[in-house]
Design a protein around this nucleic acid. Structure first.
Length: 491
RNA sequence: GCCGGGUUCGUCUAGUGGCUAGGACGCCAGGUUCUCAUCCUGGUAACACGGGUUCGAUUCCCGUACCCGGUACCA
């Protein structure tokens, strides 16, 4: 059975790139009736960001990417127990990693290293100064035999070997090469001599990413490791670990990076990239999903609109792009407009209430029907609803249509008042007919009549048509506004 | 520096050993409209460069340039 995972480290909020990093493995697993797992790679305590775990979990849940297994949600997490499972946490699996590390020591495929960070730093500087590749010099490899049968222990968060603080390093073979076939990039090969003797267990007893990821992916039965391009160069280390531990290799697929407008790696520096921020502004999950899915993947035809189910059906890992994609919010806006326009009224109302909690449902519903073709994201409704709720003051001059004059505007408004006063059914079509009648009977143009009425109602040069606004405002308020426009013109 | 990866319109991308290199967003123009948005029609703009291979290369190969990633007791 196919099984994939999303394995973020809780060092910040889930951003657009992370969202895609979760989406692709999710889609791949689901289309093969497989499973998807969430695992938090929290092995670096110093980089832990408070709230990041909650943010990642909740954002994934809101977007609708649920994982299929895991331990029960920890009560210490500030999360409603919405999903059935919590994520796996690497920090809760320390003994597992330590056990396998000991195994590697015993088999001579890893060794204890007692070098100080000070020495390592100097070594690095020396190598860089000579334009040499910077790499551990294997100093402690010589001690392999001496410590081969030594067992390490963890005491007060310190890894000790014969009471000396140490780390455990991977013993990379001296020669040869590692090849692997990346599902997206094809064959990649790296020479052994270019691979560093990576630290596997840090001096605090925590595993590094490289050890933990291999052990967990194996133990959790991950068949396809789908992750960001930044991992390509460490993949050989991982492959070596699989071989040393006699485990079957998973398939690897390295996704292209998401970039800022200036082609640098997507970061918080330039605009907001947290998925949560978009959700908060009223970007719909389906729009975000649709847009992000197309950032690096495309079907063979011209289709662009996909909901989650359709993505599962149509996604094709082999069609994922090799080059990084720039995150450009113009197109996201277009997707969001589309999904807002096509949202059922009832649902749109429910979503929009968060932005205008004090407006009665009935009124908000009417406003939304009029304004929904004008929204890039839901938060915009706050501004757009303004003139429905309160008519701001405006200059009398804007009541006059550009091809008309003040006298005509007054006449038009007066006639419209008369007509509308007698109107029994307050419906858009009837109101429009009434305005059209005023045009005809007085030999005016549409602009002579519709423009001043519309401005009288909205106070704006640009707005929805007058009959639509009036249908929202109801008769009394509409007539009040037209009357006040007349008063303005008389001054 | 070293290692690895990448390069089709401004952006996301389709595509092929021979095509007027296609679509979408954006932008521009026109239509609809009192105005705006929607909607419809049209336009705009790209194969990084240099060598090969070939009758013919955007497509295959090799270089160069540029961009990105890695080069940690970070992930």
């Amino acid at each position: 059975m196919i099984k994939t995972r999303f394995a973020p480290s809780p060092t910040g909020y889930l951003h657009i790139g992370g969202l895609r990093g979760a989406l692709y493995p999710y889609l791949f697993a689901k289309q093969h009736k497989g499973k998807f797992v969430l695992r938090l790679e929290d092995t670096d305590q110093s980089r832990y960001v408070k709230g990041a775990v909650e943010n990642i979990i909740q954002t994934l849940q809101k977007i609708g990417l649920e994982w299929d297994e895991g331990p029960y949600l920890d009560k210490t997490l500030n999360i409603k127990q919405k999903g059935r499972f919590g994520p796996y946490f690497q920090s809760q699996r320390l003994p597992i990693y330590q056990q396998y590390a000991q195994k590697l020591i015993d088999s001579g495929q890893a060794y204890y290293c007692f070098c100080s960070t000070d020495r390592l730093e100097k070594l690095r500087q020396l190598q860089q100064g000579q334009n040499q590749p910077s790499k551990y010099d294997g100093c402690c490899r010589r001690l392999t035999e001496k410590y081969k049968s030594a067992k390490f222990k963890i005491q007060n968060s310190k890894l000790l070997v014969n009471d000396r603080p140490a780390v455990i390093r991977l013993k990379i073979p001296q020669s040869g090469e590692v090849r692997f076939n990346d599902l997206i990039r094809g064959e990649v090969k790296i020479q052994m001599e270019d691979i560093d003797d990576q630290v596997l267990i840090k001096s605090d007893g925590f595993p590094t990413y490289h050890l933990a990821v291999v052990i967990d992916d194996h133990l959790m039965g991950i068949t396809h490791v789908i992750r960001g391009e930044e991992w390509i160069s460490s993949t050989p280390k991982h492959i070596l670990l699989y071989q040393f531990l006699n485990w079957d290799l998973p398939k690897f697929a390295h996704l292209p990076l998401l970039l800022n407008k200036d082609r640098s790696k997507l970061s918080k520096r330039q605009g907001d990239v947290a998925a949560e921020d978009y959700l908060k502004k009223g970007y719909l999950p389906e729009a975000l999903l649709n847009y992000v899915a197309l950032l690096g993947w495309h079907p063979s035809d011209d289709r662009e609109l996909f909901r989650l189910k359709e993505l599962i059906k149509n996604f094709d890992l082999s069609r994922v792009q090799k080059a990084g994609a720039i995150f450009d919010s113009d197109k996201l806006n277009w997707f969001n407009c589309f999904y807002i326009k096509n949202k059922p009224d009832k649902e749109l109302l429910r979503l929009a209430k968060k932005f205008l909690p004090d407006v009665p449902d009935k009124l908000l519903d009417k406003i939304l029907k009029v304004e929904k073709s004008r929204l890039s994201y839901l938060a915009e409704i706050c501004d757009r609803a303004g003139y429905f709720l309160n008519l701001a003051d405006y200059e009398p001059e804007i009541l006059i249509f550009k091809k008309s004059d003040g006298g005509t505007a007054r006449l038009a408004l007066e006639k419209v008042m008369d007509r509308l006063n007698g109107l029994k059914k307050w419906q858009p079509e009837k109101i429009k007919q009434a305005l059209a009648a005023v045009v005809q009977e007085n030999r005016l143009t549409n602009g002579d009549v519709f423009w001043p009425v519309r401005v009288a109602l909205s106070g704006l040069k640009q707005s929805p048509p007058p009959e639509e606004i009036m249908a929202v405002l109801e008769k009394d308020e509409s007539l009040t506004r037209i009357q006040s426009a007349l008063d303005k013109l008389k001054k």
